[in-house]
Structures are given as structure tokens and as C-alpha cells.
């Protein structure tokens, strides 16, 4: 008998680091030196703060390069770093560094942010708490999934797989444990970064209803 699935939820307290960048060189320097929780926050913030939007705005670095500095090409390059590929945030940091270094090496014009529009590096403290929802089987899982907050879905899909260096997402692992290989495979194929959290909830409900 597999362990029941206990739904957890999480919330972030944003920490200010007192560090800012005025141009792409300083942005790169910041990306190199900030705590890894800052890389996490700046590449994932939009997922929660703008989770109703699809397509979502890009990560904070890309948004700043494009919308504040007007460096469209750089912004696009940073926006297209495929966050889902990176289960280790240090690898994601290295990729962002490589993209920015590549552009810097080409030389050319570097925009400066006007005063008041600098990039401010922040990080976060994540507080994780259990919810009252526990599922022993697929039917209970579906029932709970309909009721939990999007923060809980976020925790089990994004937080678990990336920040906590978990292998896959929690839902995939649990259904694997139940022997639902087909469902687990379908769940692991989801690209949660290109869908709203409510859209993700609906998609998971559909998959579980179909395969469990």
C-alpha cells in the first residue's frame, strides 16, 4: 500500500537584498553573486503573481531588459531560457550567465536604466505548511485537487521539482508509486511554465480522470 498523498501549501516572504543593477553588466554581476533563492524568485515570480495570464510575462530579468532598457534582442534571449529544463537552480544561474556573457562579448550599445528604474535584486523565504487535504486514492486526490489553493498546486509542481531538487513533480511520483505508470508519464510531460495555474489544475484533473 502506497503512502497517502498529503497536500502541502507554500507562501513566500520577499526579502530585499539592497542590491541593484543599472545596466546589463551590473545585471550579470548580480546574477553571479545573489543567493540562489534570488534566481529562483526572479524566474518564478510571474508564475504566481500573474498566474491568471496566458501567455505569462517572461522572467524578471527579461522583462527588465525588454521593457525598461528597450534591449529587445537580449530580452528575448533571456526570456527563452527554458526554465523547465533546469532542476538545479545553479545550472539555471549558469545558463543565464552564459546568455548574458555571450551578448556582452559581442560588444555594442548598452542601455542604462534611468534613475528609479534600476533592477532590484530580491530573494525569498518560503514557508511550507500542510493543508488538511490527504488523498489515499485517485478519487480522493481529484476531490482534494479541486479544493486546494493554487499555491498548493504551485508547491507540488514547481517548488518541489526545482527549488527542492526533487525528481519530477510530487504528483508524478505519487502516481508512479500507485503503479499508474501511464498517468505518471502524462503528468511528467506537462510543461507547467506555459500554462496558467488554474489551467494546470484543470489539465491535471482531466489527466487523472482519464488515466487513473
Amino acid at each position: 500500500m502506497s503512502e497517502p498523498f498529503h497536500f502541502y501549501t507554500q507562501a513566500h516572504l520577499v526579502r530585499l537584498l539592497g542590491m541593484k543593477a543599472k545596466n546589463p553588466v551590473e545585471l550579470l554581476e548580480g546574477i553571479r553573486t545573489v543567493p540562489v533563492s534570488s534566481i529562483y524568485y526572479h524566474t518564478h515570480r510571474f508564475l504566481q503573481q500573474h498566474h491568471y495570464l496566458s501567455p505569462e510575462p517572461p522572467n524578471d530579468f527579461a522583462y527588465w531588459l525588454t521593457s525598461i532598457l528597450g534591449m529587445q534582442e537580449w530580452g528575448e534571449a533571456v526570456a527563452s531560457v527554458d526554465v523547465i529544463q533546469y532542476r538545479d537552480l545553479e545550472h539555471l544561474r549558469s545558463r543565464l550567465e552564459a546568455v548574458l556573457s555571450g551578448y556582452l562579448a559581442k560588444g555594442g550599445y548598452l542601455a542604462q536604466a534611468p534613475e528609479g528604474h534600476e533592477f532590484h535584486f530580491v530573494s525569498c523565504v518560503t514557508v511550507i505548511t500542510p493543508t488538511p487535504y490527504i488523498a489515499h486514492d485517485a478519487a480522493q486526490f481529484l476531490e482534494a485537487l479541486r479544493r486546494v489553493s493554487i499555491n498548493s498546486i504551485y508547491f507540488h509542481v514547481f517548488e518541489a521539482r526545482l527549488r527542492l531538487k526533487n525528481n519530477g513533480n510530487d504528483f508524478t511520483l505519487w502516481f508512479q508509486g500507485l503503479g499508474k505508470e501511464k498517468l505518471a508519464a502524462e503528468l511528467s510531460r506537462l510543461d507547467p511554465y506555459t500554462i496558467t495555474l488554474e489551467g494546470l489544475r484543470k489539465k491535471i484533473i482531466k489527466l487523472v480522470s482519464r488515466y487513473a
Partner: peptide, 13 residues
């Protein structure tokens, strides 16, 4: 974020 400073203590937004 623009109001934060270099301080010796943690700062929350």
C-alpha cells in the same frame, strides 16, 4: 524595492 538600503539586518518587502 527602491526603498531598501544596505543594512546589517534582513529586509522584507
Amino acid at each position: 524595492p527602491a526603498f531598501s538600503r544596505k543594512l546589517n539586518i534582513p529586509q522584507a518587502l
